[in-house]
């Protein structure tokens, strides 16, 4: 608590407010409602917080990737943690750690996978690592990657945006539960995929039939990574089914996960400003 400010005429700047917001946000990424944060700030400063300064401070933090924002109940914010550096690829005998699988998967999604979608020439696409974004306490709300595709039509108005989420699992991590994790993520996306590092001859292949069945039953795509360092070894075993996810849920999800540049690109595209 600060010293009393009764009668102080000084204006809180958005920079000062942004610093206070970062100090007040739980470090573990637990979301805080906007109205609660504003109350905390009002008590901290013993004065009313100007909404325009408050939201300018949020925009500043959001642009700097220091916070994420969620929709609902007047909006929420949460602290973003810094993404740890990717570990080096393992030796032949070691199991690939999930973090080591991230870069090969990102490259595959932006190349072979996206090409396989057979998008029109003028369509745009975005691949983003979202593994460290989103509330840590949100159950199954943090896909490892998202792929957003956007296209406009020649005759029809508007644009079509499709959002894919990818849940990456290591050789030992593939399970029926992982299918349901990928399924849960489709509450924010149109297509859910489970990406499983499953080398040829792996003992985990015994689980493949059951996992594939659950993927098929729930409309979840299944991608097998045989050799992470060779993208031609990746294979789509099951295609996902498009979910009728409410647009508002997807919009809020993208707003909180896409980087400012990606948000800008997507916004311009759906407005028809990008040719």
């Amino acid at each position: 608590m600060r010293e009393p400010l009764s009668g102080e005429g000084g204006r809180l700047t958005e920079t000062a407010l942004a610093d206070q917001i970062l100090k007040l946000l739980p470090e573990d990424g637990t979301p805080v409602l906007n109205r609660v944060m504003r109350t905390m700030l009002a008590r901290e400063n013993q004065r009313e917080i100007d909404p325009s300064v408050y939201f300018a401070a949020l925009d500043k933090l959001s642009a700097a990737n220091r916070i994420g924002r969620l929709r609902g109940q007047g909006g929420q914010l949460f602290a973003l943690s810094e993404t740890p550096a990717a570990p080096p690829p393992p030796t032949a005998q070691e199991e690939w750690a999930e973090q080591a699988l991230m870069a090969p998967l990102g490259a595959y999604l932006g190349a072979e996978f996206r090409e396989g979608l057979d998008l029109p020439k003028d369509a745009k696409w975005i691949v983003q690592d979202t593994s460290a974004l989103g509330p840590k306490h949100g159950q199954w709300a943090r896909p490892d990657f998202i792929l957003v595709t956007a296209m406009r039509f020649k005759l029809l108005p508007g644009s079509q945006v499709d959002v894919h989420s990818f849940e990456l699992k290591t050789e030992s991590g593939g399970s029926v539960q992982a299918v349901h994790e990928a399924l849960a993520q489709t509450r924010f996306t149109h297509f859910g995929h489970l990406v499983w590092h499953l080398p040829d001859g792996s003992r985990a292949e015994a689980r493949l039939a059951e996992i594939a069945k659950h993927c098929g039953d729930h409309g979840i795509g299944l991608i097998r990574m045989r050799k992470p360092d060779r993208r031609e070894s990746f294979e789509i075993l099951i295609d996902p089914v498009r979910k009728a996810t409410p647009a508002i849920a997807i919009d809020g999800f993208l707003e909180s996960r896409l980087s400012p540049d990606h948000r800008e690109t997507l916004t311009r595209l759906v407005r028809g400003e990008v040719k």
């Binding site: 009393p4 109350t39 009002a42």
Partner: peptide
Amino acid sequence: LKSCIYDRASNVSHGGQTLR
């Protein structure tokens, strides 16, 4: 007395605003 008052002390909000 003014210096002893804790302004905007409430933890309660209404209509998105902290109670005065």
